[in-house]
């Protein structure tokens, strides 16, 4: 087994953006949507359209993400379904408004028009955020994470931890494979591990212990190697820092991000827009 990064250089609008822009944008949308508690479909739908556009602009191949989306859909529908089943609460209080007409009844629970609309809104809202989360590993060069975090203000040491983790990842994946092979050569068969949960977990020890213990020994030498090259003694130069530069498109995207974040609060608390509400056309469908 070889670890392969999902990242591939693609000449797309998204990948030409500074990684910092993309992280900041990501957080602005999430916080602009969730902190002011926006549930108005008229706000969510345009955001969904925007996320979908950005997702498509990233040009990630469908075969790479098929499995992920399948999982996400199952999760979203399970959680939303569970939520609706358990109460329909969690979002705005008006969802449980008993005045909403009951459409049908399942397992003794009244499914109202409000609950159905809420569930639909919730699915779209969750997918809006997921559309922004999924492309990140596919479109951000792993070699630039540390530098990007450094330039976002995290310390030299924390940023370098990130780079060093990326450095060791393929090494440990290879070690894990070797350990797997060497235990199989001793007759160990993972498929045949039987018994209760506890004994099955314990039987994973031959795979986990060698890799972990070897890494603790490796660490001591890596510490020496880094100390001997003066790590952590001065403020560091980040050689790739100059590769990260905000360009015109970055400023546009950052401006947009700021508008979305501030806009969420202004809409909700200044103008009173953004609360959960059921459009008449939807109610009319059932009447």
């Amino acid at each position: 087994m070889l670890v392969t990064w999902k990242y591939r250089p693609r000449n797309t609008f998204i990948q030409r953006l500074d990684p910092r822009t993309r992280l900041l944008f990501f957080f602005c949308v999430i916080f602009g949507l969730t902190l002011p508690d926006i549930w108005d479909y008229r706000v969510i739908l345009p955001l969904f359209a925007m996320s979908l556009t950005l997702y498509l602009l990233a040009r990630i191949e469908w075969k790479d993400v098929k499995r992920v989306w399948l999982f996400i859909f199952v999760l979203v529908f399970m959680i939303v379904g569970l939520n609706a089943l358990l109460s329909g609460r969690g979002g705005p209080a008006s969802v449980t408004n008993t005045a909403s007409p009951v459409v049908f009844e399942v397992l003794g629970i009244d499914v109202t028009i409000a609950k159905i609309w809420f569930a639909l809104t919730q699915v779209v809202r969750m997918i809006t955020m997921t559309l922004l989360a999924i492309p990140i590993p596919y479109t951000m060069d792993p070699n630039i994470y540390g530098t990007a975090f450094r330039k976002l203000g995290s310390s030299d040491k924390v940023s370098f931890t990130m780079d060093l983790a990326f450095r060791f990842l393929p090494t440990f994946a290879r070690d894990f494979t070797i350990t797997m092979d060497s235990q199989r050569a001793r007759g160990y068969e993972l498929e045949k591990v039987k018994g209760g949960i506890a004994s099955r977990l314990r039987k994973l020890a031959p795979l986990i212990i060698p890799v972990v213990m070897q890494s603790t020994v490796t660490g001591e030498e890596v510490i020496d190697a880094m100390d001997l090259r003066a790590f952590g003694t001065n403020p560091r130069t980040w050689i790739k820092a100059d590769d990260l530069r905000y360009k015109f498109a970055d400023y546009i995207m950052l401006g947009l991000a700021l508008i979305l974040l501030v806009g969420g609060f202004v809409l909700r608390f200044g103008l009173g827009i953004g609360e959960f509400f059921i459009p008449d056309f939807f109610t009319n469908l059932f009447l």
Binding site: P142, N143, D163, L164, F166, R167, V222, A225, M226, R229, A230, F231, G232, T233, N234, P235, R236, T237, W238, I239, K240
Partner: peptide, 18 residues
Amino acid sequence: IVASNVFNEIAFGPENLG
């Protein structure tokens, strides 16, 4: 070796010296 690519590895010491 503490860096993922050759250039960064060789630059590591001088980077630390600032």
